[in-house]
């Protein structure tokens, strides 16, 4: 007999993979894959803040991530600070604030492993609905502003000169990226979120030469990795997130040999 929580866990992994893989080609080509990791770490402080003050975790974390992202943009522009440095500063400060808040809440024990690799067995029906909506919103966003996203990814400055509305699309993209990370963090954890934002596109670009095909292949790779990784973890009693990442890495190595042959 297959229990509901196992079906939810399986669906959760696959849907989480789809939602993140849709963003993967844009994140990878814009060379902002560090954003996934940075935003996940910043989200940690948001979670700690919500736990400390007894607030809604999702809303607090999301607001916190969006505010800090905007602050990074403002501080780096205003004080002419390198954006990568500004991100690293805010990332470490956020993590530190999170750890201080958790240590102050003496009676609360925080499971760091669950934060790093997520906990798929906690996925419920509401999470599945949330992930379906999130994937649909991502897909709609990409389809609707594909032209703008494509040129933003190609070269934002030149796209601006050619009067393509890249500023607005960039803000929407970053906010939606933050929403994806916050929602997926609970399910997938930092490591899987980071992996699913990079690996699907890197694998897809090893095979596909066109952008649209890369998006389709990336989503398929992510779904297959999540599905098979989950089944392997269930069968061999291994950590789910880690199994998905390792399986996806194996596909990456396979496609590297394909790329070498074709070059």
């Amino acid at each position: 007999m297959i229990y509901n929580f196992i079906i939810y866990a399986f669906l959760g992994c696959v849907l989480s993979g789809i939602s993140l893989a849709l963003f993967s080609p844009f994140v990878t080509l814009r060379k902002i894959s560090y954003m996934g990791e940075a935003l996940s770490h910043i989200a940690f402080a948001g979670i700690a803040l919500a736990l400390f003050f007894g607030l809604n975790i999702h809303i607090t974390t999301l607001l916190f991530v969006v505010i800090i992202s905007l602050l990074i943009g403002i501080v780096s522009k205003r004080f002419k600070l390198d954006e990568a440095n500004a991100i690293t500063i805010f990332l470490s400060v956020s993590m530190s604030i999170g750890i201080i808040l958790i240590s102050l809440k003496n009676n609360y024990t925080f499971d760091l492993a669950s934060y790093l690799f997520g906990n798929v067995l906690l996925i419920g029906k509401a999470d599945i609905v949330q992930l379906v909506i999130l994937s649909a919103v991502n897909l709609f966003f990409i389809l609707f502003v594909y032209k703008e996203l494509f040129y933003l990814t190609y070269n934002a400055e030149i796209a601006g000169v050619y009067r393509i509305r890249v500023k607005l699309v960039n803000y929407l993209f970053l906010i939606l990226l933050a929403v994806n990370i916050v929602i997926n963090l609970k399910i997938a954890g930092i490591i899987l979120v980071s992996a699913q934002l990079i690996l699907p596109a890197v694998i897809a670009f090893n095979i596909a030469k066109r952008f649209t095909w890369a998006i389709v292949i990336g989503v398929l790779v992510s779904m297959i990795s999540a599905g098979i990784g989950f089944l392997l973890s269930w069968y061999f009693n291994l950590p789910t997130g880690a199994s998905i990442v390792v399986f996806e890495f194996c596909i990456f190595v396979l496609t590297l040999t394909f790329k070498r042959k074709h070059n």
Binding site: V145, K147, E148, Y151, Y154, I158, Y162, R163, I164
Partner: peptide, 13 residues
């Protein structure tokens, strides 16, 4: 890309 500004937001070529 040179034609993109003539198209409304979200519209395809």
């Amino acid at each position: 890309m040179g034609l993109a500004s003539k198209l409304s937001f979200g519209k395809r070529f």
